[in-house]
């Protein structure tokens, strides 16, 4: 055999659980196309009733923030507690907030 054997592309899998509102990242897998990726995800990640909806996206389409820039990206938010909505006086009529 030559080196013609090609790896299937990598896909990221997002699963929404029965109780959940949003799809959460579950992991990744290999598949030849989107349809196969969804079916593989069903077989690999929902065997124990983890979900009722699956999203897949090819990993190459995900753009990530640069870990080296993490300081500049995230640290400045640290001392801006006023951004949390904890300084408002809630009217008495408002419940369950």
């Amino acid at each position: 055999m030559s080196n013609e054997h090609k790896e299937w592309p990598l896909w990221e899998v997002f699963i929404r659980s029965k109780a959940g509102l949003d799809h959460k990242h579950a992991g990744s897998l290999h598949a030849a196309d989107a349809q196969m990726a969804i079916e593989n995800a069903r077989d690999v990640y929902t065997r124990r009733m983890e979900g009722i909806s699956i999203w897949v996206v090819e990993s190459k389409h995900i753009h990530a923030s640069n870990p080296e820039e993490a300081d500049a990206f995230f640290d400045p938010a640290q001392d801006k507690i006023y951004r949390h909505p904890t300084f408002y006086n809630l009217p008495d009529e408002l419940k369950h907030m």
């Binding site: 299937w8 897998l29 290999h30 598949a31 079916e39 593989n40 077989d43 690999v44 065997r47």
Partner: peptide
Amino acid sequence: PILEQDIALTN
């Protein structure tokens, strides 16, 4: 032949 299909078959 590949992990994902191995699991599919086993399922």
